[in-house]
Computed example of a mutant assay.
Amino acid sequence: MTTPFGSYELNRFPADPRDQLRAWDAADEYLLRHLDAGTDERGPVDLAAAAGRITVIGDRWGALTTALAAHRPTQITDSSLTRAATEGNLDRAGIGTSKATVTLLTTQDAPPERIDVLLVRVPKSLALLEDQLYRLAPHVHEGTVVVGAGMVKEIHTSTLRVFEKVFGPTKTSLAEKKARLIFCTPDPALTAKAAPGPWPLTYQVDEQGGSGAGLTVVNHSGIFCADRLDVGTRFFLQSIPTNTDGARVVDLGCGNGVVGAAVAVADPDAAVVFTDESYQAVASAKATYEANVGAGRRTAEFHVGDGVAMLDPASVDLVLCNPPFHSHQATTDATALRMFAQSRKVLREGGELWVVANRHMGYHTHLRRLFGNSEVAASEPKFVVLRAIKREARQRPL
C-alpha cells in the first residue's frame, strides 16, 4: 500500500497464499489522503499536534494504524485477527508495538482519556459502531477531528444517523473509487450527556430452542442476532449431543456461547471451551455461561484467538461449530475450512466435529476430504447439520 505517509507491505491474518484479498482497500487510501491534504473546510489534520491522542477504531487489518504509527495512534479493535495482523504489519514496517509507537486496545478495554483525532472504519455491525461511539463520547471534545471511512455500500443513512445521534452534525464526502468519507463535528451538548448504550442485551431462549430452551443469553454489541436466537443456531440446538459424559467440548466460533452453555447445563461434568476471534463474542459467552451454570460446576475455558490454534493436539473430544461465511463484506469459505482443519488437529482419535451450515455451502465435500467421512445428522430445506469423526487414517489435503 502506497500512501502519503510511506509504502507498506501489508498482510491479512492468518496468512493464506490462496487468499487474493488485500489487507487494505480504497476507503483506507481515501482516508489517509484526506489526513495528509484535507478535503473539507477544516483543512488538513494536524497529526503532529495530535500525536499520542489519535484513536483508530474498526481498522480491518491494521493498514491505518501502520501508516500512522509515527504519530503514536491507539487502535481499538474487536478482532484478535485484526490485532495479530496489525502486529505483523508493524513488524514488517520495522515499527513494532512499544509504547513509543502504537497502543493496541480491545473493545473490552477502557478507552484513552483524551481523543483529539478519531478515525472510524465503518464496521459491518451498526450496533458495534453505536456502542463504540457511546463509549468514546466522553473522551472527545469540541475540537476533536472525527473522520469515518468505508466503501459506499457500507455507509447507509442509518450509519450517518448514529454519528449524528451520539456525536453531532455529520456529512459525507463525494465518492472516490467507490469509497466515501464521513465528517462529524462533536457537539459538547450531546457528547457530554452521552449515556451508556443499551448493551449488553439479554433474552431467554423459548421452549422451541431445543437443548437451549430456557437458557439466558447475553449479547454484547456486534454479535450476530443480538435479541433472539438465529435460525441456524436454533436448528443446531435441536441436534447437538449434550450427553457428553464429561467430555472436553469446544464451542468453536462461540458467538454468545449459547451452544456451549447448553452442553454445560446438560452435563455438569463436561469441560467446555469457548473460542472466538471476537473479544465481544467471548465476553458474551462468558456472561451467558455465568448466567446459566450454577456455582460448584466445572470451570469453563474462554479463549480469544484464531479458532482452536491455542489448544493442544488431540486434546478435545467434541467440537461444535456454526462457522461464518463472511469476512467483513466478502463471502468466503476460507474461515470455515480453516476451522475444520484446526478441529481435526485438536480432536482425539474417535473425536467428532459437528457443523451447522447453510445447505448450499457444500461443506460435506470438504469434511470428507479432510476426515475421510461425513454424515448428515439433521437437515431441513435451508440448513444441514454434519458430523465428521476423526479416524486413524492420515489427513488428506484440502
Rank of each mutant, 00 (worst) to 15 (best):
S284G: 13
K171A: 13
E41T: 14
V147C: 07
V272H: 05
W24Y: 15
P123N: 07
R18L: 15
E29C: 12
L337S: 08
A85Y: 07
P186R: 02
A23T: 01
I182Y: 05
G150E: 12
P17T: 11
Y289N: 10
D16L: 05
A357R: 00
T242S: 01
R180Y: 14
S221Y: 02
P323Y: 05
V384H: 00
V316F: 08
F5G: 03
A63V: 06
T77F: 06
A149F: 05
G296E: 01
T86W: 01
H364R: 07
R338Q: 15
E301W: 03
Y30N: 08
V122T: 11
G296R: 06
K165N: 13
I115A: 08
Y134G: 14
A285K: 05
A15E: 14
N11A: 15
L126I: 13
N219S: 15
G197C: 01
D269E: 15
A84Y: 09
T55P: 03
N256S: 12
P169Q: 10
A357V: 00
V272R: 02
E130L: 13
I95F: 03
L311T: 02
V117T: 03
P73F: 08
R22L: 13
L128K: 07
E375N: 09
S98R: 12
R348E: 07
V376H: 01
S173I: 10
K99W: 14
P112G: 09
N373V: 04
T170F: 11
A67V: 10
V217G: 09
V304K: 02
V293K: 06
T332R: 05
T365P: 07
A27L: 01
D116V: 11
L160N: 07
K382D: 00
P17L: 12
G294S: 14
Y203G: 07
A93Q: 11
H141E: 12
A336V: 02
T172I: 13
W199F: 12
G260W: 11
Q238F: 10
A291T: 05
L105M: 09
A195P: 02
A336Q: 02
W354K: 02
V45H: 05
E352L: 04
R18S: 15
N358K: 00
L318G: 01
L31V: 13
T216Y: 10
L35G: 01
T202K: 00
D306H: 10
T202Q: 09
V356C: 04
N373E: 08
A262Y: 06
T55W: 04
D16G: 09
P188L: 11
P381F: 10
A26G: 09
R391P: 09
V346E: 03
N358P: 06
L181V: 04
T335D: 00
A51K: 08
F371R: 01
V147E: 02
E87I: 15
V45M: 07
I57P: 01
G307Y: 01
R298F: 12
N322C: 05
L128I: 14
G94T: 03
G253R: 02
T74R: 11
G305R: 11
Y30S: 05
A189R: 14
L21Q: 11
V293G: 13
G88L: 08
